[in-house]
Structures are given as structure tokens and as C-alpha cells.
Design a protein around this nucleic acid. Structure first.
Lengths: 344, 344
DNA sequence: TCAGCAATTGACAACGCTGTCAACGGCGCG
DNA sequence: CGCGCCGTTGACAGCGTTGTCAATTGCTGA
């Protein structure tokens, strides 16, 4: 309701001075600065973001794009993103993007053109599997918008990446199982087009190698990160004559499926079989038994992605931005689904 | 990049005509309309939303505000909201709001002033517990912005409400337990400041009354909708000399806690005790045993809230809008956590 | 004391769009 | 045949802000 001119009149200055004060620009005497601030407070001034965006070509908005598949993982990242946006006076907008593989290149470009051109976000946040999509990567190269990618990533020269060392985490978690005496450790893979599947599997394999164990291909099962494929994998694995004593599911949802398969067969967890997951999503501690898993600092990842985007947008010099893309810390969460292998 | 004037030049018309065509306004000959559309397509025109918003005072954005506590419930509603926004060419922005009770009235007003004035959303979506907050209700009355509230609601004359009949659902679910032979049915309450707690409890009580059962206050336990209070309630209830044979937790997360308490005591579910929840959140089918619960059409609720807001913003005549606030359909989902009472 | 320069302040245009209103042309009707 | 009306189209202003640049002020140093 109140506009800049109202503040200007109240303070007895020009509207440009008000603009300067409210944007913390230099070249205003401190006394005047104070007077203007007081006036703004007085009339309850709130800047109009459309006007600002139109004139300054900065929208003070970050746009997060996720695959059209709900997940606690994405939810947590988004939550972190909103937090940081709010702290810094930014807005978070969210969009869904259906499966990219079914979309012709031209549509994809058009889609992003609309998205980027229309609302001119100051930054884009991409989450898996979008964050590691090669076509999308190339399409976005054409647009002049900073992009932050969350999750494991193997794209060339992608600027802002926020991730943990999934391979090391998987290695560590597998090593833990081995230390408990397990040698027949099954693995349930996730979606094959997601980098997480490969990183986590690689870590699993490295741990086996380091302990001199051989990878038994019959213990590796496909999956899609969904509960039902975990269930299916569990059914298959537990039907094996020589049952695994531990199962590493590439994420928590599939671990829940494995647990259910175990329960149905009246197998004791962790007595008969240990189960671990990955992500420490919300359900991990709510399962029976509570799941040993790898905690990803998803909130912090959302925070960090947003922070870096805002910094990039704020600093005029792009060379300044970019705290190097180091790994965030993960943590192995020990709960009740793992135990020493049973002496038989 | 391409502006309206570029389209206008390409089509050999004035920019106002282009505006008319792209906004589907009348008073343009069909032939010309086609020519303009083709030109727009040709130059890859994308309207600038800041400019539109500035001039027309419509932002084509919906703002969803949620409590700063992540939940699958809110996530699902938001998902529905984005879907509909995207279909209708709107943007969804999300905000967090910390606990209102700790906030002085003045701060609350200021907060919303900033939010509503700055980005001028075409509508606000409120989810529990915000959607039933009385102070917030009064604050929002002052602003000229349509508000949609999701979830059970007892505020006076609140315009757009999207909900299911929680009381009837709770009654039906309880009746189901009674039909299975249960008579000692415990209830775990949620947060006391949320309407859902009271509606669900009321339904539970009505079912007992209708079957001539008396409500045993020792079987009613407090909670806060969180897993850990469910666990605590379960511990307490199962320690009772005369244990309940069924537990109705006011939401799924608490039901998961009750289940864990049962498992720890080596109680068989549903053999020794039946457990039900409410919401059919994502974890319901992933628990052991899979949870019997009430499905809320959360996606549809998000869709509906958004649809009504957009309709209200689109139609100039406010009387036209507002399909009356009827209940959306719920569904009792029968899974494996309920069974007949054991003959002893 | 006064030129010269930096610090401060303001006037004005412009961002890209839509609302208002005027101009134009064709057509029905007297 | 001419008047007036309606359906089309366009010129122009203005939404609220920031960028550019000029004007003013205050201060330093010769």
C-alpha cells in the first residue's frame, strides 16, 4: 500500500534517496539514513517485488525444481531451501517436472524458457534425478541463470554442487556390517539412471574388496528406490537356499520393504538378518526395528544450495562466489536393525 | 528476452493488440489473432511476470504457508497445490511460519504485511495448524487476499475450506474396531490446539456411544502427533493391568510409535492388540504390520484449495466463485494391523 | 579566499506490460 | 444517401522501482 514516494514525502527527501537507504547503498549521510528508515517504519513501507524485479532484473526468488514424485528426501531439501530463503529475504518457488526421458528436446527447452524467462529467478535448485540429468544440463547451459545441483553428480564442470560422499558412506556402512561378522551381504540397487545407485553400490563393493570378500552377484538385486521393490528384493533374497545374513538397501524406503519381507517370513531382525538403508529419512526411526542407516544432512544441503545461489546472485563478481564444492558431512546412524552375525 | 513489442513488430500490429490476443481478450479479428499468435510463437515470446504483476496487480502466484515443522501431510498438500498451479499457469511460493503463540500480535501483522504486500499473491493456502488459528484468522481479515484453509476448521465464516469429515471417518474406523469385537479401545490424542485432535476424538467417542460402550478415561492418552509421544502412549497403555485390545492413534506417526511399543513388548499385532492410525501418510503401508488407517485425499485437497483460489482470482464476480465447502471423500484403508479380538 | 574535487542528493527516464480512451471504418436503418 | 453505432485497432500513460547523470554541498589545499 505504502509506496516509496510516501516514505520520501514523510522524510522530506527524494525517492531515490529512499531507494538508496533501503538497499543499503552508500552515499547517504548517517543522520538522513536514520530519518528515512524511521519514516519507512512509520508508514509501514513494504517494497513491491514486481516493481523491483522489473526494474532491477533481480527477482529475489529462488526456484526449486523437482521430479514429479513425492519423497521425504526432496521434502527435506526444500525445507532447508525455504529456511535460507526466508532468512535472506528471498522467496522460494517450487515446480514439478515430469519424466524427462519422455520429453522431446524442444519441449524441454520450451519448458525451461517459460520457467526461466517468465519469472527470472535468481537461481535454480535441482534435486535428483534432475540434478544429474545430462540433457537438462546442456539445456540449462544456454540460460543465464545460476544452478545449484543437490545430490551425487558426475556432470562436467557443474558449478554449484551440494552433496555428501555417498561412496565413502556406503563403504563405511558396509564395513560396519563386515565388522559385525557378516560376509554374505546382499545389496538392493536403486534406479539405474540415478547416480546415487552407482555411488552407493561402488562403496559397497569397495568395502567388500578391502576385506577380501568376493561380490556374489546373486546377492545383488535391482530396485527403484520404492518400497515395493525393496519388498520384492527381500522376498527373493530370503528365498535363497544360502540366505544372506545382511542386506544393504540403497535407500530407506527399500530397506523398509526388506524388513517387511523378513517379518512376513518370521525372520528375526537383526538376529537372523541385519538390514541397513541410506538417507535416514523420516521413516528410518519409525520402523520396526529402527533402521541403521546413513544420515544425509538434507536440511543443511538445502540451506547450502540456497546460500550459494544467493551469494552468487548478490556478488557481482562471479569469481568471488563458490566456496568450492566440498562434501558435506554424513553420519552413520546405528539403530536396532543391525547386529552381529548369529553363530550357527 | 523477446518482448511484446518484438511480437508486435513481427506481426505488424500494435503492442496493445498483442496484449489482447495473448490474454484472450475480445475485440480482435480471428485472422489477426492467428497472425499474432504465430508471431509470438516465432520469436519465442514469454511474458514477463514482474511487468504483468506490476501493471495488472495480479501476480499469478499462490502462496502456501506452513508451520515450520516438516510433515508428510503438508508435503502431500503442497504437491497437490503445485500440480494445479502448474496446470493453470500459476506459480507456487512456499513460506514457513514459526510458532504463532510465541509471536506478539504486532509481529504477526508485520510478518503478513510483508508477505502479502510484497509479492501480492493471488491467494494464500493455509495448512494445519495455521488454518485453524484464530489470531491469524483475524489478522488476515484485514488483508485483501483470498485465503484457502486446508483441514478441519471451526472458524467463523472462513471462506474457502477444504477438508474431509474427520469426525465421521474416526467414527467409522472406531466402529470397525468395535465390529471386530473390541471393547477396550484406547485413544492417543494429538496436539490440543489442533482441531483434528478434537474432531477425531469426537468421532471415536460417538462410535463408542452408539455401541453402548463407555469411554474409559484411563485409555485416553495425550500426544502431539509425533512418533515419540505415540511410543510413550503405547508404553503406558500396554503397561496397564487391563490392557486395551485396540489402540486408535490420532495420526499415523503416533500409530507407528504405538506399534513399536507393542513390538518391544513382543506383543503380536493384530493378535494381541489392533492398532489404527489416521491420514494414510506414506509410512502407513511401510510399517510392520501395514497400518489400517483413514485415507485423506491430500493431493486432491491441495488441488482443490488451489483451484478455488485461482477461480476466485479469475472471476471478477466473487459471488460466482465458491463451490460450497463440502467435504471431500475419505476412505478407510484396511491393512494388517487390525484383526478380531482374541478369544481368551 | 577561492578553485577543485569528492561526497551527497535529486530529476528523470525506463523496465515491460495493461488500462483508458480516442480514432477509424463498416454497416444497419431512417 | 447520410447518420450513428458497434466492432476493431492503436496511442499513450502509468504501475513502483532502480540506473544514469546532473546539480548541489562541503571540504581541502594553494
Amino acid at each position: 500500500m505504502a509506496r516509496m514516494i510516501d516514505v520520501a514525502e514523510k522524510a522530506g527527501v527524494s525517492i531515490k534517496t529512499v531507494s538508496r537507504v533501503l538497499n543499503n547503498e552508500p552515499h547517504v549521510k548517517d543522520a538522513l539514513r536514520e530519518r528515512v528508515r524511521a519514516a519507512a517504519e512509520d508508514v509501514g513501507y513494504v517494497p513491491s517485488s514486481p516493481a523491483r524485479a522489473l526494474r532491477s532484473r533481480r527477482s529475489y526468488a529462488i526456484h526449486m525444481i523437482s521430479h514429479s514424485h513425492r519423497s521425504a528426501y526432496v521434502n527435506a531439501i526444500q525445507f532447508g531451501a525455504v529456511q535460507t530463503c526466508q532468512e535472506r529475504g528471498y522467496q522460494l518457488m517450487v515446480s514439478l517436472m515430469e519424466d524427462l526421458r519422455d520429453m522431446p528436446e524442444a519441449d524441454l527447452v520450451a519448458r525451461f524458457e517459460r520457467l526461466v524467462e517468465a519469472s527470472k529467478p535468481d537461481g535454480l535448485i535441482l534435486v535428483p534425478p534432475l540434478s544429474n540429468d545430462e540433457r537438462l544440463y546442456h539445456v540449462l547451459e544456454r540460460f543465464d541463470v545460476p544452478v545449484a545441483r543437490v545430490g551425487p553428480n558426475n556432470l562436467p564442470d557443474a558449478r554449484i554442487i551440494v552433496k555428501i560422499n555417498e561412496r565413502a558412506a556406503a563403504r563405511e556402512l558396509t564395513a560396519h556390517l563386515i565388522a559385525l561378522g557378516h560376509s554374505r551381504i546382499a545389496f538392493v540397487r536403486g534406479k539405474e539412471d540415478q547416480n546415487a545407485t552407482h555411488e552407493r553400490f561402488a562403496g559397497y563393493k569397495e568395502a567388500l574388496d578391502q576385506s577380501g570378500l568376493v561380490l556374489d552377484e546373486t546377492l545383488v538385486h535391482p530396485g527403484d528406490f520404492g518400497f515395493s521393490t525393496g519388498l520384492k528384493a527381500g522376498d527373493a533374497l530370503f528365498a535363497l537356499a544360502d540366505r544372506p545374513t545382511a542386506v544393504f538397501a540403497a535407500n530407506d524406503d527399500m530397506a523398509a520393504g526388506v524388513l517387511m519381507a523378513a517379518h512376513r517370513l518370521r525372520l528375526d531382525v537383526p538376529g537372523d538378518v541385519s538390514v541397513v538403508g541410506f538417507d535416514d529419512s523420516e521413516i528410518a526411526e519409525k520402523m520396526w526395528p529402527a533402521l541403521t542407516t546413513v544420515r544425509q544432512p538434507l536440511l543443511a544441503m538445502g540451506n547450502e544450495a540456497t546460500r550459494q545461489l544467493i551469494d552468487a546472485a548478490t556478488q557481482s563478481d562471479p569469481a568471488l562466489s563458490g566456496a568450492p564444492n566440498e562434501y558435506l558431512d554424513y553420519e552413520i546412524i546405528h539403530r536396532d536393525s543391525t547386529g552381529p552375525v548369529r553363530q550357527s
